[in-house]
Design a protein around this nucleic acid. Sequence first.
RNA 1: GCCGGGAUGGCGGAAUUGGUAGACGCAAUAGACUCAAAAUCUAUCGAUCGCAAGGUCAUGAGGGUUCGAGUCCCUCUUCCGGCACCA
Length: 859
Amino acid sequence: MKSKTKSTEYNHQKIEKKWQKIWKLMRVYKTSEKGKKPKCYVLDMFPYPSGTGLHVGHPRGYIASDVYARLKRMKGFNVLHPMGYDAFGLPAEQYAIAHKIHPRKAVEENIKTYRKQLDLIGFSYDWSRSVNTSDPGYYKWTQWIFLKLYSSWYNKIIEKAEPIENLIKIFEKEGNENINAACSSDARKFTAEEWKIAGNLDRQNILMQYRLAYQGFSEVNWCPQMGTVLANDEITTDANGKQVSERGGYPVEKKTLRQWFLRITAYADRLIEGLDDLIWSPHIKEIQKNWIGKSIGSDIEFSIKGRQEKIKVFTTRADTLFGVTYVVLAPECDLVKKLLPAVSNRKEVEKYIADVKSKTDEDRMSANKDKTGVILEGIKAINPANLEEVPVFVADYVLANYGTGMVMAVPAHDERDYAFAKKYNIPIKEVISGGDISKEAYIGEGKLVNSGKFDGMNNLEAIRKITAFVFGKVVTRYKMRDAVFARQRYWGEPIPLIHNADGTITPVSEKNLPLKLPNVSSYEPIGTGESPLAGVKEWVEKGYETNTMPGWAGSSWYFLRYMDPHNKTKFVGEKADKYWKQVDMYVGGAEHATGHLLYSRFWNKFLFDYGLIVEDEPFKTYKNLGMILGSDSRKMSKRWGNVINPDDVVKNVGADTLRIYESFMGPFDQEISWSTDSMIGSRRFLERVWKLQEKVVNKYSDNEEVILLLNQTIKKVGEDIESFSANTAVSSMMILSNLLEQQEKISRKTYLDFIKILSPFAPHICEEIWFRFRNRKLLVLEKWPKYDTAKLYSSKAKIVVQINGKFRTTIEVPADSLQDAVEEEALKNEQVVKWILVQKINKIIFIKNRIINFVIASQ
RNA sequence: GCCGGGAUGGCGGAAUUGGUAGACGCAAUAGACUCAAAAUCUAUCGAUCGCAAGGUCAUGAGGGUUCGAGUCCCUCUUCCGGCACCA
């Protein structure tokens, strides 16, 4: 065997093509559920295959997870590393309309492009497990899960979803008097008798208030000119500040439409609690927590003088009840309508409500914080704590959709109430912090304290006491609302429900799933606000639901399908699910924190409730990545002309260089600008590694410095990959290669160990080098090298000598030397002596192998 | 406004978690090779004083704790992200 391998030029194109072909032929990335190895499920967020293809930013996360997956494989894990396509959704539909091509066709073509682009970069995906959410074989199960949600309710006593049949049995037995369930806010109490005599439609309406997928109404953005509903993304503001469609610039208004909802709020508590055990970056958890927005407060009733109706307010500060000086109702509040006839300034109030309605949400929110409102003359609310009469206002700073839409105002302790009270000259009464509940303790003089600041009583105990005192109820509320689960669009999963002529709804039976999306000639809006499916005769005749599911339906469970993608009888088989359990490492963008990441957790918990899967949480570890911006520090987009196509990079400098560069460019979770200039450094690095082949000899022992650094690097690179610090991993390998370059000879073992730890980052070049050293087995199947703990540290230690904490010089001593020895050595040093001179040493601070600090100045 | 994360050379960024600030890479400068250029190699590369040895100042600003602070504490400035009249 030749001791030196003749080095040729590093031809990345040839090498990358060659090994991609061989890996594919040998199916090295194919995974199965067999064997005794521990498992590791490494997942990327699957892309939406757009018409513009991948840009250089997309692979950043894919590269990081691929490096991780490769390391795990080499460390002996059975790795599941799949990739697929999130193919339903609005962008595909828009692309299709713009290009006059059927979305299915467009998606097919785009997927081909994506696959080609991804393949060029050399990812270690098991493509045999790929999924496409718009494939009927896939969305059959999306529909199946929807039906499961539809036929479930949430039992709050056992904190679990259950079949709706259980609920019906309870209704039959005892009505809903004692039920503790997640339900719509308008659910009323009824008895078993009432249930028995109720008609089918009544029963349906009642059940709808409990189902986890339910029908309801919501406001949408409606564009009369285009005859279609628009997503928020499709709307911009024109020069006059009016809301208009992004395409065409047509006016947009609000319209109430029939929708389907998912009762995600049922899971609010579990979605918060579940975060504790997840290894996610804290700020992502924080975003989810904020979004869910749990707050504990009290429902308290104020009676209205001389009337039957009650004003039911929600407050988190029941302890300030004695400071209430007025009550506010939201303009949309039903109670306002009921009270209007008795209001003496009725005209004024009606005008105010009309004005508010004409404002857009944005106007209302951004209206420079100036509070507006109008008093309901002739109406007085009675504070249940002290039976004081207070005025009632209608004001738009109270939102109809949070809490009860009615608020007790305590200007002394709430900034907004304070601003309002100042403007309308309402008294401001401070509540004195005190111990027991007695009127005296709470009633103070009418002077202002710093808004909102009220120590002492702001605790649950006080709130409980006073809430009980006024016969209120301590309740938990959430900001999060139920998710609208319907789109008036063509390109989505059909909702598998049938509307019968009598108004009842029947689910499509399981054996008839998938309910396939019909092939229509026109998938453009039909002008009524309904989905294009409403224009398909056979569809409507059969009574099928014309709304389709939103883009996030398919992505809410795809991680489960990868475990068992070809299962025809279940969305995931028991065996596969028990084996893979959950995603161990999930990588993707932080922008999905309140969307996909929340919905997926919700669906996963729901399926878990039924024992259909074994894990409550889908993603154990989640690493969020920062975006790659264009070299001009703007988002890469056609509009700015700053898009870099990975295909070009791969062609010019190679996939390995791209992989190294994207790993090296900066911390993974930070946004960073692309720099083609900087990339050259990564290419140079690989070329130097390539050239090192010439220095390799068979029988040679490396010097201590090389051996130490090699061992340290093996350790560091392994640890850095695990913690997603690829940038420092690459830098440490550069340091090693720099040292190896200085050597005249390198041992074969050292070089090949280096190649092994480099291979997750640059698999092609490493496989080629490995091959050139006449290894028969493929490098991708090799084990990760072990470092020798005895060879991590030098036998000598460099000690920093400080005088008064200031660096003065370094000395070299045997490793692990004790203080006395180091002291003695240090005091021999000229530099040290010079600084100490005749001054007395007050104190010596010594840290083994690191530092000795002489403190001489007296304090 | 509230919550979360940042701010380090000309640039991207390191820093053993309180212990030599600026690793590694890019750019730049000089030199070698070349007829020349590119590529490659070698050296320099925070500011400042000094012939040098070496010193002083430097991690957004200002205070503090400590033998010692980029790292911990307080105040402020500023940038990015999330939520936003949430009662």
